[in-house]
């Protein structure tokens, strides 16, 4: 019987697990009173579910419906004029949700804020492209890689994968080597499905050794010419004759003499 492999998360797992190992957490600090971050939290107001400082950056957890509102407040009233990064993390296997984050930068104060929200599977998120044009490409990439639809985006199309690709690669259900559609994509596109047999499947094993391949490998003792048929005839291994020792002579006679 085939071993049961859960398909909802095909990321590589650690082979050895220590059940007594307690995983530490990256320390989360409280926001200091009167600091810039405290002002930011106060200005944004009631939409924040949770806020803390992690590795020098403020992290705000919000609801996905409020993302446009919160980011607008951050841009116009708190001076966060650049959206450095935005993407998603796939938690579908655990909570059936995506965790989206936006990384914002304030150039005058040299501070960064991360806005995090949890989006349930199947819902769409509001685009922040009217606020930050950098979201144009970044949201397209998020859609391409995860399948998260974005409302009111001017041009939501696949960006990194080809336009006719099926599947969203960065989901945890998508295997690293690609599914069947991916593995035959270039053959189907260029030559057509008939050539699948002629070209053959991809070789995904970096350590593959084929004993019948006489063009890349040669077996010591059974050498054949390049590209010829693989045979089982033994070839004589000829060593060179040096001045002192003749390696071609069998060693057993010397040993017999010594005995």
């Amino acid at each position: 019987m085939r071993k049961y492999v859960p398909k909802d998360n095909v990321q590589k797992k650690a082979y050895y697990t220590d059940r007594f190992h307690v995983v530490p957490r990256v320390p989360r600090e409280k926001i200091e009173e009167g600091s810039h971050f405290a002002n930011v939290v106060k200005t944004v107001g009631a939409d924040i579910k949770e806020s803390y400082v992690e590795i020098g950056q403020l992290v705000l957890h919000i609801n996905p419906e409020d993302n446009f509102k919160v980011i607008k407040i951050l841009k116009e009233q708190c001076g966060y004029t650049q959206c450095s990064e935005q993407s998603a993390v796939d938690y579908l296997a655990k909570d059936n949700e995506f965790e989206l984050f936006w990384q914002l930068l304030n150039v005058t104060e040299a501070k960064r804020v991360r806005v995090v929200c949890r989006l349930a599977n199947g819902l769409a998120i509001e685009s922040i492209e009217p606020l930050f044009n950098s979201a144009n490409f970044a949201e397209r990439e998020m859609f391409d890689m995860f399948g998260i639809k974005v409302n009111n985006h001017p041009f939501l199309k696949r960006i990194l994968m080809p336009d006719d690709w099926e599947g969203h690669p960065l989901l945890k259900t998508y295997p690293l080597f690609g599914d069947e559609f991916a593995s035959w994509y270039e053959v189907d596109k260029i030559f057509g499905k008939e050539y699948r047999d002629i070209i053959g499947p991809e070789n995904r094993d970096p350590a593959k050794i084929d004993i019948k391949d006489t063009k890349r490998f040669s077996r010591v003792g059974y050498e054949v010419p390049f590209g010829a048929e693989y045979t089982e005839e033994e070839q004589e291994i000829e060593y060179s004759e040096t001045a002192l020792v003749n390696y071609n002579k069998k060693a057993s006679k010397t040993l017999d003499e010594r005995r």
């Binding site: 797992k13 650690a14 190992h21 995983v23 530490p24 990256v26 990064e85 984050f101 990384q103």
Partner: peptide, 29 residues
């Protein structure tokens, strides 16, 4: 196995701001 958490670190590469966002769940991957 690093601690659980997330980090975003920006650096000034010759092309601009190169940053890595890493989210870890305590696994080696």
């Amino acid at each position: 196995r690093p601690p659980r958490g997330e980090v975003y670190v920006p650096t000034e590469s010759p092309k601009g701001e190169l940053g890595f966002y890493i989210k870890s769940e305590g696994e080696p991957y």
